[in-house]
């Protein structure tokens, strides 16, 4: 973990370089989404200094990077808990319990959407369609791990796993 928000680790930069290589040489900005994800993975969220550092690395205006960071909803512009749980409550999920699953998690953790538990462990978010409606209820853990068919028993198990 690198604590200086304006500095990205060599490992992060290496991963960003790999993303940059996907695009034509004069289109480094194309890698900004991936670079912000990599930076967020490293810092836990996206402080403004980190966004500016990513922008500088890719040769773009910090504001252009901020537009991106604020447009896509899985970037965290505020600190989040160790486990960010995003519950899809959109209609197809709701028909199979998405809203109820969210309520269940809220009760279990004692927090509402966009809140973090006092111990800093969990943040709860309401999500939009994750493209897995057949697996409803669906949750995402830390943006990258998708959990399917989240009925009470499975939710209990997930929360217990998150240490």
């Amino acid at each position: 973990m690198n604590n200086d928000n304006a500095q990205l680790s060599p490992e992060a930069l290496r991963r960003i370089d790999r993303e940059v290589a996907k695009y034509p040489a004069e289109q480094k900005q194309s890698a900004v989404m991936a670079a912000l994800v990599i930076a967020q993975d490293e810092k836990g969220w996206l402080p403004k200094e980190t966004i500016a550092a990513v922008a500088e690395y890719l040769g773009m205006a910090p504001m252009a990077a901020y537009e991106v960071a604020s447009f896509y909803n899985m970037y965290d512009l505020q600190p989040v808990g160790k486990y960010k749980i995003t519950v899809c409550t959109n209609l197809p999920c709701a028909l199979s319990g998405g809203v109820h699953a969210a309520e269940y998690v809220k009760t279990k953790l004692g927090i509402d959407f966009n809140e973090t538990t006092a111990d800093g462990k969990f943040t709860l978010k309401e999500g939009e369609c994750m493209g897995a409606c057949g697996d409803a209820p669906v949750m995402l853990v830390n943006n990258k791990r998708m959990c399917s068919f989240m009925l009470p028993e499975q939710i209990d198990k997930l929360l217990a796993e998150c240490k």
């Binding site: 901020y66 537009e67 447009f71």
Partner: peptide, 14 residues
């Protein structure tokens, strides 16, 4: 961005 040459303003969020 276009006239002054550097994007100092943007439209954030959505």
């Amino acid at each position: 961005a276009e006239i002054a040459g550097f994007m100092e303003l943007g439209q954030s969020y959505r």
